[in-house]
Design a protein around this nucleic acid. Sequence first.
DNA 1: GTGGATGCAAATTCTTTGCAAACCC
DNA 2: GGGTTTGCAAAGAATTTGCATCCAC
Lengths: 147, 147
Amino acid sequence: MENKSNPMIQAMESNGLRITSQRRWIAELFSVSTGFVLPRQVHAYISERLPGVSYDTVYRNLRLLTEINLLEQFDFPEGVRFKLRCGPDHHHHHFICMKCQRTFPIDFCPLDSGIVLPESFRVISHKFEIFGLCNSCTASKGGSKNG
Amino acid sequence: MENKSNPMIQAMESNGLRITSQRRWIAELFSVSTGFVLPRQVHAYISERLPGVSYDTVYRNLRLLTEINLLEQFDFPEGVRFKLRCGPDHHHHHFICMKCQRTFPIDFCPLDSGIVLPESFRVISHKFEIFGLCNSCTASKGGSKNG
DNA sequence: GTGGATGCAAATTCTTTGCAAACCC
DNA sequence: GGGTTTGCAAAGAATTTGCATCCAC
């Protein structure tokens, strides 16, 4: 591992969190993967590197990291998934590959397109995602294995 | 009840389903509510009219009705919710009130706005929802009670 | 009458919590 | 050393399943 320079580690530090090896591996996973992962996949990944890590530690950290805005949570049919939160520098949406779960930015926001709502409605948030198959997964029946 | 003319009942019949009183009340609920409801809310609603109805009957029917495309399922943070599926006559999206869970159609689809994706990407589906407060819920702190 | 639907109860799966021991700073 | 974090084990919540009984057609 040895990822002193991992920005997620730095963000954890600046939030006053202690850097344990469990957290180091979580940071490593999310800095490598560009997709949405299931808690059980996170646990599996860490288990390989750190045998004996417990499920609840993974859950606790996923929740914690989501609360401090380092991770982003998304409810999929098979359960909740997490991914590294995109920087606040520019608002965008995502194309999400249904096979490999990788995400690709879409620089277009439907809210900028002159949607008309009743005056009294107050917009708080919005979601826009496109689901499909990315280039690698369209090409090969097998597809990419990124989780 | 006596809702022979309820289109959801008719759709159930044409799918070969038997019309039980449990299903009649489920149809009644979804024809009255324009919003997303939680399974436990469905169960509560039916329990009031049909004491003793079991949770698993509600679940089984929600799943079944979703499979035959009469209901639409949506994953909210508090859990999965269901609502009557909009007819296939015209594609649209929704404004969803975060207080009363009612939905309001938005006649705008971001996919029609010239979004550019890599050639090789294959679009399978998409989601676009705006979350906020509807007029009744913006007006009164209390808001509407529709579930 | 018969096959589909229900209710019950128990099993699964996912997620959370309490607490003592271990560990980071 | 002191306060955080972890692992364990158990509790909770949501959802599913097996099976005998019941009921719509």
